[in-house]
Each structure stands twice: as structure tokens, then as C-alpha cells.
Amino acid sequence: MTLTLWYALTGVALLVVGVYGLVSRVHVLRQIMAVNIVGAGVFLVLVAGAHRRPSGAIDPVPHAMVLTGIVVAVSATAVALAFARRLRADADERTDGAAREDEARAG
């Protein structure tokens, strides 16, 4: 087994773990982390594939694409987390509002 194949298959294993986590977990933070793990798996497959040049050097194009991918992934994660915080804040507000109404009715 070559270095490429070993790390590419590791990437596939990460992808499987991430996809399973994404569909089986319920908490939004865990789902966001699962998407990131899927991304890491895909990146690993791409970069392992860039390690096959007969000269032994790397193919820099997939490297540049994955570098772009990592930065885009962190932006997407930040937006997803902002959505999560907003959902949480709105849910808290509704709960507080309902509690106040209950108090008013009881009072």
C-alpha cells in the first residue's frame, strides 16, 4: 500500500464517520463539527492524490484548492454558528416572553 492510498482511505474513513455523525446527531454544534470532519476527509483524499507525481514532488494545484477550502470552511462554520446563536437567542426570548405572560395572568 502506498502513502497516497493509505491517507486517501483515512480520508474516506473520516468522511464516513462525519456523514454518520451528521445524520445521527441532533445538537447543532455537533452537526457543525460533523460537517467539518466530512470536509477534513475530502481534503485529505484530495491532498493524498496530489502525492503521486513520478518525480516525487507534490502537485500544488490540489494543495492550493484545499487551502482555499479550509478558509471557506471556517467562514461557513462562522455563519452556521451565527445562525445557531440567533436561533438560541430567539428561543430564549420566546421562553422569557411566555414566562412573563404566565406571571401576568397568574398575578
Binding site: T2, V12, V16, V19, V23, G49, R52, R53, P62
Partner: peptide, 27 residues
């Protein structure tokens, strides 16, 4: 769920397994 994820993984793994050993790409 595990079977679905595992099947997808096997398919992608088989594709990776079939890669040629030497590939210059755009290097």
C-alpha cells in the same frame, strides 16, 4: 444510518483504490 454511510464510504474507497499509482496532474 451506519449502513448508508458505510456504503457511500465503500463506493468512494473503491474509486480511490482504482487510482493509478503515478499521476502528474497539473504539477
Amino acid at each position: 444510518l451506519a449502513l448508508a454511510a458505510g456504503t457511500a464510504g465503500l463506493a468512494i474507497g473503491a474509486a480511490v483504490w482504482a487510482w493509478p499509482d503515478a499521476f502528474a496532474g497539473l504539477g
